[in-house]
Amino acid sequence: MEVRTIKVFTTVDNINLHTQVVDMSMTYGQQFGPTYLDGADVTKIKPHNSHEGKTFYVLPNDDTLRVEAFEYYHTTDPSFLGRYMSALNHTKKWKYPQVNGLTSIKWADNNCYLATALLTLQQIELKFNPPALQDAYYRARAGEAANFCALILAYCNKTVGELGDVRETMSYLFQHANLDSCKRVLNVVCKTCGQQQTTLKGVEAVMYMGTLSYEQFKKGVQIPCTCGKQATKYLVQQESPFVMMSAPPAQYELKHGTFTCASEYTGNYQCGHYKHITSKETLYCIDGALLTKSSEYKGPITDVFYKENSYTTTIK
């Protein structure tokens, strides 16, 4: 009895394709271990004539594949690729409408935090270190965002349907971005203890939790000093293409032309909904596939993004 075979390709990165001759009487799992086709788990399936010449994702289970996976995804987590594939199996079914010149995501599976993050990423200057993220990001900007969303979920250790947080998501993504040249110098002034300067680099240099107003941050924000008295913390120097200011959701007025974009969060910790506000020729609110415009805006804002380049204080 002759062994019926077909020729397929296996890959971990969709760049390096490895030619395989597979036995049609055995499952993919018996031949390769966990195997995925377009995100779908085909591990328990036997090869079919229609699979001839198709590319299958496999887990990096030998040295060659491990090197290829690390170079593309910059992670050695053995569960990463499987999590990416199972997320992709959902995100490829989502709709990605162009809204006001940006790629958004039609609401499904509690994905409003991903839509808000995706919209924000198209408006701030950011370059990702893992080629996987950078490639998928370019495709997302062009309207094909399924891979990018699935990668975000995998890097953030999230599953489809789980509630997510924009600030946490951005923080994970910033860790995989090139923020080497970003720098922030802060000064804390206390009447009792004097003053202390701190220099922050990388992710810490672009994120701040405690106030939404970048102007206020430049002037000074009140913080408790270690001595128990009130101290003032203010920005001395900022070198970065953008800054992200966050605070627990509270009524906040966004003035046209003073910011790049913002995240609105309605609801409580267990259950809520994100919308995205962007400042173009007027203010726009993007909620999944829905767009509304207004000249002014007041609502429960939790993150505001500002364009920056270089700032030095005039406070002496």
Score class of each variant (00 low, 15 high):
2 E>Q: 09
2 E>D: 12
3 V>E: 13
4 R>Y: 12
4 R>I: 05
5 T>G: 12
6 I>W: 05
8 V>R: 01
10 T>L: 11
10 T>V: 12
11 T>W: 00
11 T>A: 03
16 N>E: 13
17 L>A: 00
18 H>N: 12
18 H>R: 11
19 T>F: 13
19 T>Y: 12
20 Q>N: 06
20 Q>T: 10
21 V>P: 09
22 V>E: 00
24 M>W: 12
24 M>C: 14
25 S>H: 14
26 M>V: 11
27 T>Q: 12
28 Y>L: 05
29 G>Y: 08
29 G>P: 00
30 Q>H: 13
30 Q>F: 12
30 Q>K: 15
33 G>Q: 01
33 G>C: 00
33 G>P: 06
33 G>A: 00
34 P>R: 07
34 P>N: 12
35 T>W: 00
35 T>L: 06
35 T>K: 00
36 Y>S: 02
37 L>K: 12
37 L>F: 12
39 G>S: 13
40 A>I: 09
41 D>F: 02
41 D>A: 09
43 T>S: 11
46 K>D: 09
46 K>Q: 09
46 K>I: 13
46 K>P: 10
47 P>S: 01
47 P>N: 00
48 H>E: 10
48 H>C: 15
48 H>W: 15
49 N>G: 15
50 S>D: 14
50 S>M: 13
51 H>L: 01
52 E>Y: 10
52 E>A: 12
54 K>S: 12
54 K>E: 15
55 T>C: 10
55 T>Q: 06
55 T>N: 06
56 F>M: 09
59 L>A: 06
59 L>E: 14
59 L>I: 15
59 L>S: 07
65 L>I: 10
66 R>A: 11
66 R>L: 11
68 E>I: 08
68 E>L: 08
69 A>W: 04
69 A>Q: 15
69 A>G: 05
70 F>N: 10
70 F>Y: 00
72 Y>W: 11
72 Y>K: 14
72 Y>C: 10
72 Y>V: 04
73 Y>A: 00
75 T>I: 14
75 T>D: 05
77 D>R: 02
78 P>Q: 07
78 P>H: 14
79 S>D: 14
82 G>C: 15
82 G>D: 06
82 G>M: 15
83 R>G: 01
83 R>F: 00
85 M>G: 04
86 S>D: 14
88 L>W: 13
89 N>L: 05
92 K>R: 11
93 K>T: 15
94 W>I: 01
94 W>N: 00
94 W>E: 01
95 K>D: 13
96 Y>K: 01
97 P>I: 11
98 Q>H: 12
100 N>Q: 08
100 N>L: 09
102 L>Y: 08
102 L>I: 02
103 T>S: 04
104 S>L: 04
104 S>K: 01
107 W>V: 09
108 A>I: 05
108 A>R: 11
110 N>P: 00
110 N>Q: 10
110 N>L: 02
111 N>S: 01
112 C>S: 15
113 Y>T: 02
113 Y>D: 04
116 T>R: 04
117 A>S: 15
117 A>Y: 01
117 A>Q: 06
119 L>M: 06
120 T>R: 05
120 T>K: 10
121 L>Q: 00
123 Q>A: 03
124 I>A: 03
125 E>P: 05
126 L>K: 01
126 L>Q: 01
129 N>M: 08
129 N>Y: 09
130 P>H: 01
130 P>L: 01
133 L>W: 00
134 Q>D: 05
134 Q>A: 11
135 D>Y: 07
135 D>H: 14
136 A>T: 08
137 Y>F: 12
137 Y>K: 01
140 A>D: 01
140 A>K: 03
141 R>E: 09
143 G>S: 02
143 G>V: 01
144 E>S: 11
144 E>V: 04
146 A>D: 08
147 N>I: 06
147 N>V: 07
147 N>H: 11
148 F>L: 12
148 F>N: 01
149 C>N: 01
150 A>Y: 00
151 L>T: 01
152 I>D: 01
152 I>V: 10
153 L>H: 03
153 L>R: 01
153 L>C: 04
153 L>P: 03
154 A>P: 02
154 A>H: 01
154 A>F: 02
156 C>I: 14
156 C>Q: 06
157 N>L: 00
157 N>C: 10
157 N>H: 14
157 N>R: 06
158 K>L: 06
159 T>S: 12
159 T>A: 13
160 V>M: 04
160 V>T: 04
160 V>Y: 01
163 L>S: 14
163 L>N: 15
167 R>Q: 07
167 R>W: 15
167 R>E: 02
167 R>N: 12
169 T>Y: 00
171 S>T: 14
171 S>G: 13
171 S>I: 09
174 F>C: 03
174 F>N: 02
175 Q>L: 06
175 Q>Y: 15
175 Q>P: 02
176 H>A: 04
176 H>N: 05
179 L>V: 06
180 D>H: 13
180 D>G: 12
181 S>F: 11
182 C>V: 09
184 R>T: 07
185 V>M: 07
185 V>I: 11
186 L>R: 04
187 N>F: 06
187 N>Y: 10
188 V>D: 06
189 V>S: 14
190 C>K: 03
191 K>W: 07
192 T>L: 08
193 C>N: 01
193 C>Y: 05
193 C>L: 03
196 Q>R: 10
196 Q>N: 10
198 T>F: 11
199 T>Y: 09
199 T>L: 08
200 L>N: 09
200 L>V: 12
201 K>C: 06
201 K>G: 07
203 V>A: 14
205 A>M: 01
205 A>V: 02
206 V>M: 06
206 V>F: 05
211 T>G: 02
211 T>V: 09
212 L>W: 05
212 L>P: 06
214 Y>T: 05
214 Y>I: 14
215 E>I: 04
215 E>R: 06
215 E>D: 15
216 Q>V: 09
216 Q>N: 10
216 Q>D: 15
217 F>M: 13
217 F>R: 05
218 K>C: 06
218 K>D: 02
219 K>S: 13
219 K>T: 11
219 K>G: 09
220 G>A: 05
221 V>H: 05
222 Q>L: 14
222 Q>Y: 05
223 I>F: 09
223 I>V: 15
223 I>N: 06
225 C>N: 03
225 C>W: 02
226 T>F: 09
227 C>Y: 01
227 C>L: 03
228 G>W: 00
228 G>K: 05
229 K>R: 13
230 Q>G: 08
231 A>C: 06
232 T>P: 04
234 Y>M: 09
235 L>G: 02
235 L>P: 05
236 V>R: 08
237 Q>S: 14
237 Q>L: 12
238 Q>M: 04
240 S>I: 02
241 P>Y: 01
241 P>E: 15
241 P>G: 13
242 F>E: 15
242 F>S: 08
242 F>C: 04
243 V>A: 07
243 V>Y: 03
244 M>S: 07
245 M>I: 05
245 M>W: 01
246 S>E: 10
247 A>G: 08
247 A>K: 02
248 P>L: 13
248 P>A: 14
249 P>G: 11
249 P>I: 05
249 P>H: 04
250 A>P: 03
250 A>F: 15
251 Q>V: 12
252 Y>S: 07
252 Y>M: 12
253 E>P: 09
253 E>G: 05
254 L>M: 01
254 L>P: 05
255 K>F: 05
256 H>W: 08
258 T>E: 10
258 T>Q: 14
259 F>K: 02
260 T>Q: 13
261 C>Y: 03
262 A>W: 01
262 A>Y: 00
264 E>L: 02
264 E>V: 15
265 Y>D: 01
266 T>K: 15
267 G>Y: 11
267 G>S: 10
268 N>G: 10
269 Y>G: 15
271 C>H: 14
272 G>S: 08
272 G>P: 08
273 H>E: 04
276 H>D: 06
277 I>S: 04
278 T>E: 01
278 T>N: 08
278 T>M: 14
280 K>Q: 13
280 K>H: 10
280 K>M: 13
280 K>E: 11
282 T>I: 10
286 I>P: 07
286 I>W: 05
286 I>F: 08
288 G>K: 00
290 L>W: 11
291 L>K: 07
291 L>S: 11
291 L>M: 10
292 T>V: 10
294 S>N: 11
294 S>A: 15
295 S>P: 13
295 S>Q: 14
296 E>A: 14
296 E>R: 14
297 Y>R: 07
297 Y>I: 06
297 Y>H: 15
300 P>Y: 09
300 P>H: 13
301 I>T: 01
301 I>N: 02
302 T>W: 06
302 T>F: 05
303 D>R: 02
303 D>I: 03
303 D>C: 11
305 F>M: 07
306 Y>A: 05
306 Y>Q: 06
310 S>A: 09
311 Y>W: 15
311 Y>N: 14
312 T>D: 11
315 I>L: 14
316 K>E: 15
